[in-house]
Design a protein around this nucleic acid. Structure first.
Lengths: 164, 164
DNA sequence: TATAATGAAGGTCAAGGAAAGTCAAAAACG
DNA sequence: CGTTTTTGACTTTCCTTGACCTTCATTATA
């Protein structure tokens, strides 16, 4: 039973995939009319699904002739997204947060399917297997260590300090 | 005299066997209604019966449109070569043991350099970051989970798409 | 021409509801 | 008696909606 947010997300991703440039412009009102929902539902989808962690950038303009522009990032590791990633992880991460993050990296081509699965397996509750306050802390350390190991191959030193 | 947990387990395994992809999505509330039990009973079954060690992966999402997703892994520890690996790992492994094992897998071409580094990063003492009796146990679980993930079903048509 | 009004976008936030998760105590089992 | 199962109270996460706010372009007006 795909939720409304899921359907909107899927639609936007399809449209985005159809573009040549990886840039899509839409009108919020059009979308909300198309899906029979309140306009702010669109904002919710954008805020939760098209985040920088998942490899997207969203710009917009208000007023007459306003628009929402969706962009797929080709290389999140290239800009300072990695540092934000590290800060985002912080001292503790839930399994869900980790999942979103890793899927985003996979989507933007930073990690392969196998690598993503590897990370997800290691950040799974049962794999860590310690009780909860501690578990999220262990997961955060694991995630940072693994991302850092990937990043060492990806680019030279200096960037990604926030992962440590 | 099959217990309630046994019956729920059997039902889920039957449903899972019926799928083409090895992926089953259910609603916790549906199940608990079907078996006339409290919802958390479902969690108990999932936690005790559908573990990674037994060759299952469980994902879920809360909130509206929430679900529980059960995935059967292709190569449960119970069957072949991985079984021996799993036994060799046992309940605890030191970082050194893990290192030897992973480098061996890399040399024999089972895992790539990047994947090996990923695994080693996750099994590093500082990454796990808990005191020693426990740390080796966590490392063993991590190692098993990660190796198992490498043998996951390459089910066509985007397994896990609903979560992304 | 400078400015004020207007309408047309999109943004924010918080409340409420809909799932699933957690934990520990009680019960049942062997 | 120790282990496994069952239960339920409480928590957390996620989705949906609606009331109200901010920004921009255009047009009317002094």
């Amino acid at each position: 039973m795909a939720s409304l947010a899921d359907r909107i997300e899927r639609y936007l991703r399809e449209q985005l995939a159809r573009t040549e440039t990886g840039v899509l412009e839409v009108q919020r009102a059009d979308l909300s009319a198309m899906f029979n929902c309140v306009p702010s539902q669109i904002n919710y989808v954008l805020a939760t699904r098209f985040t920088i962690e998942r490899g997207y950038l969203v710009e917009s303009r208000r007023g007459g002739g306003g628009f929402i522009r969706l962009m797929r990032l080709t290389c999140p590791f290239a800009c300072n997204a990695l540092d934000r990633l590290g800060q985002r992880i912080g001292e503790r991460v839930s399994q869900e947060q980790a999942g979103h993050l890793v899927r985003g990296l996979e989507e933007s081509g930073v990690v392969s399917r196998r690598e993503a699965d590897l990370i997800l397996a290691a950040t799974h509750r049962q794999a860590i297997g310690v009780p909860l306050p501690l578990r999220d802390a262990v997961r955060a350390r694991l995630l940072k260590a693994m991302l850092l190991s990937l990043f060492r191959h990806e680019a030279g030193g200096g960037v990604g300090d926030a992962l440590r």
